[in-house]
Design a binder for these strands. Sequence first.
DNA 1: GTCTATATGTGGATAGAC
DNA 2: GTCTATCCACATATAGAC
Lengths: 234, 234
Amino acid sequence: MRHATDLRSVTTREALLDCAERLFVEHGHAATSLRDITREAHANLAAVNYHFGGKEALIQAVLKRRLASLNSERLAALDALESQAGDQALKPSQIVDAFFGTLLRQAASPTNEGGRFLTLLERTMTDPASFVRTVFADEYAGVLERFKRALFRALPDVPREEILWRFHFMLGATSFAIAGSNTLRLVMGWEDLGQDAPSTASQHGTTVETERLLERLMSFLLGGLRAPLPQPAA
Amino acid sequence: MRHATDLRSVTTREALLDCAERLFVEHGHAATSLRDITREAHANLAAVNYHFGGKEALIQAVLKRRLASLNSERLAALDALESQAGDQALKPSQIVDAFFGTLLRQAASPTNEGGRFLTLLERTMTDPASFVRTVFADEYAGVLERFKRALFRALPDVPREEILWRFHFMLGATSFAIAGSNTLRLVMGWEDLGQDAPSTASQHGTTVETERLLERLMSFLLGGLRAPLPQPAA
DNA sequence: GTCTATATGTGGATAGAC
DNA sequence: GTCTATCCACATATAGAC
């Protein structure tokens, strides 16, 4: 089931990225040593320092690789929608799908296994280390700006502050959608799979399952987004 | 602004718990050493081992203290509602409030500062370490069972699996509601407050703000919970 | 219960040969 | 680019005096 050389990763550099990512997801970056990573990648201990300059830089590279890919795809999706809509405002459901649907579909792509990527993303969002937050902020700033504008246009009669909050809530719901290693099992009533159980979603992480999850999540998100306002006259 | 002895915490044991909790929230438990904790608590390095038996046990104690308090209050709220409703099913909004409202209100209590407790909870939910998951599972198992049953009764025509997913989504949205240290700033367009910014919510974490947040969150959650089903005939 | 001193381990990083 | 050997900082934990 695991024989380390893993998969593609022709160069040492790539092997390090791949192995580091997997180990970070499984144990967190704080609990993963460079020795763990280089052993798994069949590389030398000094390789990380040579290729990346240090552990922090490796972590940042792992995150950047995924976030950049995700966000450029998101922007592409939004671009397509907007050019197709001409000068009309998009529907909220389109925007939500471009943002969250892209995420889930990319998480289900064969490049990732199960919800690994989502777990990584979820941790990144809440990581206390500043060098992690930096990457996150850099990679997200532009995308969020674009999507916020789109949502403002799509929901002209909802106060902007309210939209921002709901966008934030949607992020949280999505974050838990697949990745919630702990809660998902508990809520669903599944048994704990022992000490170091792998990402929950990978258990049945076929494309079909992801498709169903996406449908579930989308209707929840849209329900929340379009819910009646707390107090109409703010 | 900080002079360590902190607050109540008459005994060394309590001081250790308080300081550990704060440092865990700020830097994560992996990045927090016993030296940091004992220094902050004006206690001796050996004190942690004496009072708790080791670092892991201290972490578990920190989590248990909060989770036990939160969940007993949740159960009390549900008990009150149910005994008041007699043999009638509760309204979804009542159940959601007993679960998530209790959380937010407790997070806003003077015992905690701002969203500190929510950050702790959020991290606990997604922590990869097994000794953290254990505590979480133990403390949550009973409560979740009760609330699931209540929701099943309240929404008899919604498939149970769907309810469970939506409950899970709600957990995610709530988790991000205050605690999302990173995303919140980004989504809202606030500037980063520098290297080690404190919990975002504590910036304006008055009771009034929490009340408004609770209203926002509740309407979002209920909107999502009662959203039209993805495919009526599953 | 509290403290000092210390045992023992592990981590990240680097110098320098190949 | 890769490897070995090693340095050094820092972590947890404990033994034993007070």
